[in-house]
Simulated assay, not measured.
Amino acid sequence: MAAEQHQRIRRAFMGAASVCAATFLLASCSDYPVEVDTVDQLTGVWSDFAGRTVEFKGDGTFTAKGLDKADVGADCSGIADRQRGTVSLSGTYGEVTFDGVDCEGMKLAFYGSPSSFVACFTQDMTSGGCTDEFSRKDD
């Protein structure tokens, strides 16, 4: 009897642990588009794992450090020399323009959860054409 009760408790514990693990994985994945409607949600310094940064300002402009055409997933000639631009928000993405760079159709896509999301430059929103994910740096 004690062995049977032990098995039931073990199954209940394993079931609860599985649900918790699945919830954690779903919450931490960055595959889900997130709506970003105000510049305040974006304002601040964002970085990727390689140390490149993008600082978004409250007026819709940004300044980047270390970006090149591979970081934005497109053939944007001259981007390494031009690390400034503007972004205008449109729900789950922002329209991006780099100052003095021919880079049409560039977007900034937002993925994750409303309270913790990542941003990535892309020209192909349909296939998740992001190369690097930028997340907000902690102050």
Results as ranks from 00 to 15, higher is better:
M106P: 09
D139R: 15
S90G: 08
A50I: 04
R11Y: 00
L67S: 04
G60K: 03
V36W: 01
Y32N: 10
K137H: 14
S88C: 09
D40S: 09
G78Y: 01
G44T: 01
Q5W: 12
G91V: 02
M14H: 05
Q41A: 06
G94Y: 04
A74R: 08
D48Y: 02
R84Q: 10
D59S: 06
D132H: 14
L42N: 06
C120T: 14
A70K: 14
A12G: 01
E4L: 14
T131Q: 12
P114F: 03
Q41L: 02
M106N: 07
C130L: 04
A119M: 11
F98P: 01
G85P: 07
A74M: 05
G66N: 03
T86N: 08
E95K: 11
D99M: 04
T61P: 07
K57R: 14
D124T: 04
S135E: 14
D59F: 05
F62T: 01
Y32E: 13
D124Q: 01
D99R: 02
A21K: 06
F117A: 07
I79L: 00
C76A: 08
C29N: 14
T63D: 12
K137S: 15
C76P: 00
T122E: 03
I9D: 13
K69G: 10
C103I: 03
V72F: 06
K65L: 12
V54T: 05
D48P: 02
L42T: 03
S47A: 13
Q5E: 14
R10W: 08
T97A: 08
A109K: 10
K65C: 11
C20K: 07
D81Y: 06
D71G: 07
A2R: 14
R8I: 04
S127A: 09
D31Y: 12
F98V: 02
R11A: 09
V54I: 12
Q83L: 05
A50D: 10
M1H: 13
D40P: 00
F110S: 10
F110I: 09
R136K: 15
K69V: 10
F24L: 13
F110H: 04
D124I: 05
T38D: 15
R52L: 07
D102K: 10
S116C: 10
D138I: 14
L108W: 04
D71E: 09
V87A: 11
Q5Y: 11
V118E: 08
T23E: 08
P114C: 09
V19C: 01
Y93Q: 00
D132M: 15
D81M: 08
H6D: 15
T97V: 03
V118W: 13
A17K: 01
S116L: 13
A64K: 02
A109N: 05
F121E: 05
Q83N: 03
G100H: 13
Q123P: 00
S47K: 07
G94W: 06
A80S: 11
P33K: 05
D139Q: 15
K137P: 10
T61D: 04
C130P: 09
